[in-house]
Nucleic acid binder design. Structure first.
Lengths: 331, 331
DNA sequence: GCGCATAGCGTGAGCGCTAACATACCCGCT
DNA sequence: AGCGGGTATGTTAGCGCTCACGCTATGCGC
């Protein structure tokens, strides 16, 4: 930096001013400094700046499996928004789905000196762990239920499940079966809740839900057991991957979709519209979620506004060909 | 740090030695320092260390769309491996698919002080841009064709395409159509090459390939046009998403799979086994790819071994139900 | 003419750490 | 006893930057 200053005939401090867009620099001087920087191929050292200012312009994201469509999309949304705002994203993935793992990921990020941490870990334990989170660093959770300690940005899962179940009921189905996500996942729980409460308020006794693990494979296996029961005419599956497995299972058991049984998924993965048949599902706008989370984070950091509440994004019912009117009762 | 030293009754330097695992510290002293660190809740400042050592223990990853299965998996593989090795990953995504965008992503990472950069950008322009890459920072490309400047870790695309096309030929198909990936993508080009050369060396004149954009939607559209031609009995689709669209298109045109037409994809996405019918495809081990890239990077950094060659991972043919014997010629 | 503000720049200290050297001490050897 | 050579520790000087000042020149009002 002082080399640049020397070449431009100014002090290193003036160079710093130019870099940071300080107003009190003559245009002519600025020009000279810029030229010198260019000539010398000068690149500021952000580590030094971080040391001097105590701020790193880095944001941490802790997540579990970024191979999944949802997390991957959120991460992507965050990264894009961060980039625009001049921040860098550093990822720390959890090695296991438990609390120590979350704590260690957060700790690693703090050591790195991030200015804030976004948590993509839709787990009960994660939400729980966040209660005891350090309060000297801004935290934003993507999903995790509203609680006092940490602002949360999320898609309204209950609403989505209510829409899905209601859609099936509107179609004339007498009951709606449910293939839920694995225990421990907040979203799985919420969707199950939404499904249950919709049935109950319609005066219907909900059948016992089945529990999958989000994978197509588990959807296929669980779907196979549902397919053998001809009483089943409508299934609300907690995500699209599992729904896809259900589609195959039904097909193999000669249960036509949607003539014999209606299937609805959740997420609206890009492939959903091209499955056989095209899958009716609940769309979650993950990118928007990432965006909002980042904006919330930035407000917290820059405005220092500690008391920001999270926000909730409405999911949207996308009707395609996998749901239809209930078959007439073989009375 | 000196606070810790004071509490433990040593100098800050000894604390530093303890942190860095220096051998020349008495066990008793080490114990006291550790206790002091614990009591004070001391957290080292990595920015300061980076400033002092000139190394940041951060690796940059530049990628395009991490929403896609392939890139997401590679990123995940890299992150996991990096974590184990004690490195952090910082992502910079390209805003567009061109050279300036790549250059700016690389530049941003360098400013951040990363120790090395991994490039997940399977584009011609990216590969091209890498030729003029800065040589004062280790670079590893994930796919991009072997060239002298930058070590490359990749899946052998040609081999995959040859396996796919050969599989179809072995099944007795007289010809194999191809739905290729978009122009500019190295992998699209390679797969097209492998397909073409397999046909040619079998003495078959390759039909004009169609060009999609990797999406299910484009697969569906292109598949529809192929479906109307009853001469088409075998299609090699450049990725699974598009193949899935083709499956739907064929179904809608009452072309049975695999009785009337065989379809093979590429990637082996987790859903592939649960499509209708289960998709025959070429598996790419993205996680392994990420792993290898990271190990290569670490060797380059730590051994300072500038002359490391990249490596190539063999893809694997996964035969499922979407391919079968050619229908008898309606002669 | 003076005081006073402000623009435009420079100086010095210090962020928290490590590298290199300096020092104190203990051991075994001649 | 004296000396070399290791081991355990302290001291000092930066790494490249920003922050809090301080200084000078200029403009303006009275």
């Amino acid at each position: 930096m002082s080399d640049v200053g020397r070449l431009a005939g100014v002090s290193h401090q003036t160079v710093s001013r130019v870099i940071n867009g300080n107003q009190h620099v003559r245009p002519e001087t600025r020009r000279r400094v810029l030229a010198a920087m260019n000539e010398l191929g000068y690149r500021p050292n952000l580590a030094a700046r971080a040391l001097a200012t105590g701020r790193s312009n880095m944001l941490g994201v802790v997540s579990f499996d970024t191979t999944l469509y949802g997390p991957a999309s959120m991460l992507f949304g965050i990264e894009r928004a961060a980039h625009e705002a001049g921040y860098f994203i550093i990822v720390a993935s959890m090695t296991a789905l438990d609390r120590p793992s979350l704590a260690s990921a957060v700790e690693r990020l703090r050591v790195q000196g991030v200015d804030g941490i976004l948590v993509i870990a839709p787990l009960d334990v994660a939400a729980e762990a966040l209660r005891y989170a350090p309060d000297d660093i801004p935290l934003v959770a993507m999903t995790g239920g509203p609680h006092e300690e940490v602002p949360v940005v999320e898609v309204d899962q209950i609403s989505g499940a209510v829409q899905a179940t209601g859609h099936l009921l509107d179609l004339g189905h007498a009951n709606v079966w449910h293939i839920a996500g694995p225990p421990g996942f907040i979203e799985a729980t919420r969707r199950r809740q939404g499904w249950r409460q919709t049935l109950e308020s319609a005066g219907i006794e909900p059948p016992a839900p089945l529990t999958g693990d989000w994978s197509s494979r588990s959807g296929y296996e669980l779907g196979s057991s549902l397919a053998t029961d001809t009483g089943v005419t409508a299934v609300f599956v907690a995500n699209d991957q599992m729904a896809l497995g259900v589609l195959r299972a039904m097909h193999e058991h000669r249960r036509r979709i949607p003539a014999d049984v209606s299937v609805i998924g959740f997420d609206d993965i890009p492939e959903a519209a091209y499955l056989l048949p095209p899958l009716t599902t609940i769309r979650q706008d993950f990118l928007e979620l990432g965006n909002r989370a980042l904006r919330l984070m930035l407000q917290t950091i820059e405005a220092g506004d500690g008391q920001l509440r999270g926000s909730s994004v409405e999911p949207e019912l996308i009707v395609r060909a996998s749901t239809g009117a209930a078959p007439r009762r073989p009375s």
